[in-house]
């Protein structure tokens, strides 16, 4: 079998104050959408930055991030820069701050093309208009000369995406690309990302906190908790039969529109405490919030158990078939 497009193994990110990502791994095939799900403090955004090589200076990343078989962490900065933006690109959460307010949209898109592909200004501008059309910005030949503040939030995010896909990357990392947007716009942007994934044969890493997005748009889901992988599964499996107590708690705690929960029928299920409550403990980081704690959980983080069909769970209850089916 050919090696995956991106293979992250044993990734840890260390800061002087702590390790927000610990022994994390996942892989993504060409043209696939993998969602990395977690709350703030789960380490999902730092994982994205580690893949991009954009971690803050104080942070040290160990492990391997193999892109087409080449370990990015072992590459010198100069070679990483050639890959970044060209073969691996990123879309950030906040479209307002990821664009330069004093440069026209066309110049910002063109800049990438001039730098990575050596296009002339005129050619870059023509390509910028094509790209705006590709991301479905209406009247691209007019918008190309606009400054970011003249555009709505959704339009700005389209521009950010246009910049990201300008060099036809084979991997796009989207970090909460729709969190700052309205519901109806969010749906459009997710649809656009999925269309680009198909049309440009890109793989898409979708970093999100929203389990609904995962179910609708991802091929595979990785759930992160406190820097570690808690569970990995297909979205259908994950949403229908979550195994890890955290995943189960998260699903139970989110009111779903289709389920029609109302306060008159009783409270939502809660996950008690906060993600920070286990900092510095040796065992599983979910122990303080878990209602199925076993003695072994406090000693060391439980290893990932393979349940078949590419499904992985880092919890001892996964080894108990009844527990899996009871959920």
């Amino acid at each position: 079998m050919a090696s995956p497009l991106l293979d992250v193994r044993g990734l840890s990110v260390r800061f002087p104050t702590g390790s927000p990502v610990i022994d994390f791994g996942f892989h993504i095939e060409q043209g696939e959408t993998v969602a990395v799900v977690g709350e703030s403090g789960s380490g999902k955004s730092l994982t994205a930055l580690a893949i991009m090589g954009l971690l803050p200076r104080r942070a040290a990343a160990t492990g391997t991030i193999a892109f087409r078989g080449v370990d990015l962490l072992a590459l010198p900065e100069k070679e990483r820069r050639a890959i970044r933006g060209r073969q691996v690109a990123m879309v950030f959460q906040e479209p307002m701050t990821s664009l330069n307010p004093v440069m026209t949209v066309g110049r910002q898109i063109g800049e990438v093309l001039r730098r990575h592909e050596g296009l002339s200004s005129a050619a870059a501008r023509a390509r910028a208009i094509e790209l705006l059309d590709l991301v479905r910005v209406a009247d691209p030949h007019l918008r190309v000369d606009d400054y970011p503040h003249r555009l709505s939030g959704g339009m700005r995010q389209r521009v950010v995406i246009a910049i990201a896909v300008a060099c036809r990357p084979s991997l796009l990392v989207a970090d909460e690309p729709t969190t700052a947007l309205d519901v109806t716009i969010q749906a459009q942007i997710l649809d656009l990302l999925d269309r680009l994934r198909r049309d440009l044969a890109m793989a898409l890493i979708l970093i999100t906190h929203d389990l609904g997005i995962v179910g609708q748009w991802a091929d595979r889901v990785v759930v992160m908790y406190a820097g570690r992988k808690a569970e990995e599964a297909s979205p259908h499996e994950l949403l229908a039969h979550p195994v890890h107590p955290y995943t189960r708690g998260l699903l139970a705690a989110s009111p779903r529109l289709s389920a029609g929960a109302n306060y008159r029928q009783g409270p939502l299920e809660e996950i008690p405490g906060t993600i920070a409550s286990a900092a510095g403990e040796p065992g599983c980081p979910f122990v303080p919030r878990c209602d199925l704690v076993q003695p072994s959980c406090r000693v060391a983080p439980p290893p990932l158990v393979e349940l078949g069909g590419g499904r992985l769970v880092a919890c001892p209850i996964a080894a108990v078939p009844e527990a899996v089916h009871a959920s």
Partner: peptide, 15 residues
């Protein structure tokens, strides 16, 4: 319809 829902896998948005 814009609320993400696993039941509408990879469907284009309504609006």
């Amino acid at each position: 319809q814009a609320v993400p829902d696993p039941a509408r896998r990879r469907q284009a948005p309504a609006l």
